[in-house]
């Protein structure tokens, strides 16, 4: 049973990270390989706010959320906006470069040592007993709840609100959407903002659950097969993909060889992609897209 709880928690983490990939890819066909770094930047923003501005944990988290929105917006306006109209490969590589830049900058600012964020904002990550034999930490429980809320919110937003419709329309056919008067830049900026916000949320919660250092950005890489298995442009797909990858990882650690938990998700990913090249729920794309 504890294993099941572990799978659910890990699924939530991967799903919350993966939805960031999906949001940006869905509207602009750009894969944001700096997502892991942006996620950890969110957590470091919490370190900054709790150390400098707000002493109350909730206020610090709220401020961090606001900062993360600013970060997402600036990434688009200052950098990715310049890449619109460029080849997609160039845009993807720009995000790789952004990731390297962010990593270096974060070590410059916050140092290479790992920090205990929970202790900084006096967050007590107590163990909660769900049943006699199943326990999860407070932060992990928050993670599950937040992921649920974020997905609910995003799905409602995409399918019911005006801007959500516009985002979906731009993703399906940017040219047509632009002709119908949708401002693509606003749509892209919105996608980057939402993506960075959800990523930062994941970053804050996962670092509250353990510690923070720059290497935590690797979670971004691990959530990656999750987004791909489901199909890069489908939110429900990302959720299911996260479930598949998380279950695989936990079961491999538990029953086979933990060292395989890095390799096997990618091999499964290839197998699934060979059968369904656009993931389980992704939309089939036109052929000549790099």
């Amino acid at each position: 049973m504890q294993i099941l709880a572990n799978i659910v928690v890990l699924t939530s983490l991967y799903a919350l990270v993966a939805c960031g990939y999906v949001l940006v890819y869905k509207v602009s066909r750009v894969l944001n390989l700096a997502h892991g770094e942006l996620m950890i930047l969110g957590a470091y923003l919490l370190v900054a706010t709790s150390a400098g501005i707000a002493s109350d944990p909730l206020a610090a988290i709220a401020l961090t959320a606001m900062f993360s929105i600013v970060v997402g917006l600036s990434v688009y306006l200052l950098l990715m906006r310049k890449m619109t109209g460029q080849p997609v490969l160039a845009a993807v590589l720009t995000t790789v470069a952004l990731g390297i830049l962010l990593r270096g900058a974060m070590v410059l600012i916050w140092g290479p040592q790992q920090l205990n964020v929970g202790a900084m904002i006096s967050f007590d990550n107590a163990s909660i007993a769900l049943t006699d034999s199943v326990r999860v930490s407070t932060a992990a429980l928050w993670l599950v709840v937040c992921t649920f809320l974020v997905y609910l919110g995003l799905l409602a937003f995409l399918h019911m609100s005006r801007w959500g419709m516009r985002m979906r329309a731009s993703g399906q056919n940017a040219l047509l959407a632009a002709q119908r008067g949708i401002n693509l830049h606003t749509v892209y900026a919105l996608a980057w903002t939402l993506s960075t916000f959800s990523g930062s949320l994941a970053g804050v919660l996962v670092t509250l659950d353990s510690r923070i250092d720059v290497n935590m950005a690797v979670i971004g890489l691990k959530a990656f097969p999750a987004a791909l298995v489901g199909g890069l442009d489908s939110l429900p797909g990302a959720l299911i993909g996260a479930g598949v990858i998380a279950a695989l990882e936990v079961l491999l650690i538990h029953y086979v060889n933990p060292l395989l938990s890095d390799v096997v998700p990618f091999l499964v990913l290839i197998a699934i992609l060979i059968v369904r090249p656009w993931g389980l729920y992704g939309t089939k794309e036109e052929l000549n897209r790099v």
């Binding site: 504890q2 572990n6 890990l10 996962v206 353990s210 691990k222 936990v250 933990p258 890095d262």
Partner: peptide, 20 residues
């Protein structure tokens, strides 16, 4: 002996195994 690959971000499952 639980061996976590370098770059592991979540140790929960490794810990569960030792506890069980």
């Amino acid at each position: 002996v639980e061996i976590a690959p370098p770059g592991t971000a979540d140790y929960t499952s490794f810990a569960t195994k030792l506890i069980q």
